[in-house]
Design a protein around this nucleic acid. Structure first.
Length: 278
DNA sequence: ACGCCCGCCTGTAAGC
DNA sequence: TGCTTACAGGCGGGCG
């Protein structure tokens, strides 16, 4: 369940670990993860011999720049992991793609549920091939906006706050965990219509977005009980220790001691404090 | 056009 | 204990 803080943590590690490395060979094991390609051969051919010159994040997508001019794009979906390994390391179940570098070492893409994907494209074709990338909203960590502009975006919408926060076209990078944490930090209920917020509430919400995400990046993301997210080296994040509401239903609110509630909203689980969030 | 629901997929855990 | 069922949720697509 990687969201912005987890993907950004991985991006920073990739920056150190794979930039400057040349891809010697590629093993394409899971064809479902390469579904944008007609055949895995095409994917392999475009990668072998290429050197990685940089790694960027666009919302929840990781974009590897190659010295061939192509881009290697990766979305982790629900259960995807990227792992830095050595060739001799045993291969984990559901390993979908293995990149072996000319200098020692590998990068492996492991994805049990195969909701994630990898593909190679060009900068020109990127937004045609992946329209959702062209429609991505602003990135609250990379390109923050002013809270007044944020407010202008809110007043136009009658959508409930949580639905808006997780909409990648509105703002890029939020999923279920951080939208709940942000709404708690802002003292706002998930089902408040966006256009019902006062100026003070708008400011508080925007500040909560930025502060919560920065904090979560600082603690290297959230690793839940299922270990669905770990970093490039298999290490868990620490931000789950700081969660105020997510997966804390029945437990006392850290602020007011009222039991945290669990609700079903837009087909997802939502956690909130009925006392602190209005 | 927008809000909502489903399917995709596997691992885990609760329930009978 | 062992089988069945629900749930986890990012995202696109389809429906009302």
């Amino acid at each position: 369940m990687p969201e912005l803080p987890e993907v950004e943590t991985i991006r920073r590690e990739l920056d150190r670990e794979v930039v400057g490395k040349r891809i010697k060979s590629v093993e394409a094991i899971g064809e479902r993860s390469l579904r944008r390609h007609r055949s895995p051969k095409e994917f392999i051919a475009k990668l072998e011999g290429a050197k990685i010159s940089g790694v960027e994040r666009r919302g929840l997508y990781l974009v590897f720049k190659l010295d061939t001019g192509d881009l290697l794009v990766c979305h982790l979906g629900m259960s995807g992991q990227l792992r830095r390994t050595q060739a001799k390391d045993p291969r984990a179940d559901h390993t979908q793609v293995v990149l072996t570098f000319t200098q020692a070492g590998q990068l492996r893409f492991i994805d049990p549920r195969a909701f994630g994907e990898m593909f190679v494209t060009t900068p020109e074709e990127l937004t045609e091939e992946v329209p959702e990338l062209g429609e991505l909203g602003f990135d609250p960590v990379e390109t923050p906006i002013s809270w007044t502009v944020f407010g202008e975006m809110l007043v136009k919408r009658s959508t409930k706050l949580k639905a808006l926060l997780v909409d990648q076209r509105f703002m890029a990078g939020l999923g279920n965990i951080y939208s709940d944490e942000i709404l708690f930090a802002a003292g706002l209920r998930y089902d408040r219509p966006a256009n019902s917020l006062s100026t003070q509430e708008i400011r508080r919400l925007y500040r909560s977005v930025v502060e919560t995400l920065h904090d979560a990046v600082k603690y290297r993301g959230s690793t839940l009980a299922d270990q669905g997210y770990v970093d490039l080296f298999g290490k868990a994040g620490d931000y789950q220790e700081h969660h105020k509401v997510y997966a804390r239903d029945g437990l006392a609110c850290r602020r007011c001691r009222t039991p945290i509630q669990k609700a079903r909203f837009a087909n997802r689980t939502t956690f909130y404090c009925p006392q602190c969030q209005v």
